[in-house]
């Protein structure tokens, strides 16, 4: 597969008179292959939107190389703009225009047939309200309008920054279905979101950014597998004795509640059942504890080092002196198979 988005060593520092300099993205890398539904995750202020804006030519990068559909950004973006649909961070529209007029003006400016307007309004479920002024739209409706504007071009690549913002549960489900349909039709989708469960449901690949740096990237399954604690939930009739037997066999019992034991560091379940069964203690339940994207995300983003600031310090230097958290090594997963590697 060919890469439709390639970001290498992206660095961006914002400078303001009042607040001085702030490094937003620090040596960030990302690759999105054609046909992927790629989740882009990160806590607030981690650099997601800055990255997407740099990719779309809205923010000037200080360093790094960005390519979209093979075109260098921002210099050659004009060459591929007609093939890229994008929304960035709750886009605003001119309130006095109707939804239909807003889209029609964009279609005219972009040389897209205006017949596409009704099609995309149907696609996002806004047809009935298309003649209302945008200022009367709810946040969710504005979000749908934004997605509609991104779809107008029939894009090969769709970049969506928080597309579920303001949507109700039904709207989120519709958005999920829409993205699936688009992905099935061959559109590459890069989607950033805080809704980790949604990302896990929709995306096949993921990149996680924290404090301006990539902390994980790869297939969603591989990223999750890379963080599998190999922990099992074990239910036995005599939990105290069971715990002793497991410890004696060199296993780690991490928790104990009623007749349930939590046993960690076990690559294969047979080790538990044979250890307990061999001593006449029958296992009533043996369930693997699988990590979800949320727990992996929280683990990765909590341990990420902040970007270097222009003066050479990190914002959390003072905190790390007390907690030691910032001094922990950065964990990174290989992009292709999700294995842990030292960063």
């Amino acid at each position: 597969m060919s890469a439709v988005i390639e970001i290498t060593g992206l660095r961006k520092t914002f400078r303001t008179l009042r607040r001085g300099s702030r490094v937003a993205v620090d040596g960030f890398d990302m690759v999105v292959e054609a046909g992927q539904v790629h989740g882009f995750l990160g806590p607030n202020g981690s650099g997601k939107t800055t990255t997407l804006r740099a990719l779309l030519g809205l923010v000037n990068a200080d360093a790094g190389e960005l390519r979209v559909l093979g075109a260098s950004a921002p210099e050659q973006l004009g060459r591929v703009a007609g093939r890229v649909g994008a929304i960035v961070e709750s886009p605003q529209f001119f309130g006095n225009f109707t939804g239909h007029r807003t889209l029609r003006l964009l279609a005219v400016a972009g040389g897209v047939p205006t017949s596409r307007v009704d099609e995309v309004l149907d696609q996002v479920g806004l047809r009935d309200r298309s003649e209302d002024r945008v200022k009367g739209y709810s946040l969710g409706m504005k979000q749908r309008l934004a997605v509609a504007s991104a779809l107008l071009k029939n894009p090969e690549l769709l970049i969506l920054d928080e597309p579920a913002n303001g949507l109700d549960p039904a709207g989120i489900r519709e958005m999920r279905d829409l993205m699936r349909t688009l992905a099935e039709s061959g559109v590459t989708v890069l989607v950033s979101s805080h809704l980790l469960a949604e990302i896990q449901l929709i995306c096949d690949h993921v990149t996680i950014i924290a404090r301006g740096r990539r902390v994980a990237a790869g297939r969603v399954d591989d990223v999750l597998a890379g963080h599998d604690p190999h922990e099992w939930r074990v239910r036995v009739a005599e939990p105290e004795r069971g715990a002793e037997l497991l410890r004696a066999a060199g296993l780690t019992v991490t928790g104990h509640l009623d007749d349930v034991l939590m046993v960690g560091g076990v690559p294969e379940s047979e080790l538990i059942s044979s250890t307990l069964g061999g001593q006449g203690l029958w296992v009533r339940e043996l369930t693997p504890i699988r990590p979800d994207l949320e727990s992996v995300f929280l683990e990765l983003t909590a341990g990420a080092a902040p970007p270097r600031q222009p003066d050479g310090t990190t914002p959390d230097d003072a905190i790390s002196d007390e907690t030691g958290s910032a001094a922990e090594p950065l964990i990174e997963l290989d992009r292709t198979d999700g294995r842990r590697v030292d960063a």
Binding site: L56, G57, A81, A86, I87, Q92, F94, A109, S149
Partner: peptide
């Protein structure tokens, strides 16, 4: 509006 337009015409 300008940002929206620049997404179409960079």
């Amino acid at each position: 509006g300008v940002v929206n337009l620049l997404l179409w015409r960079p």
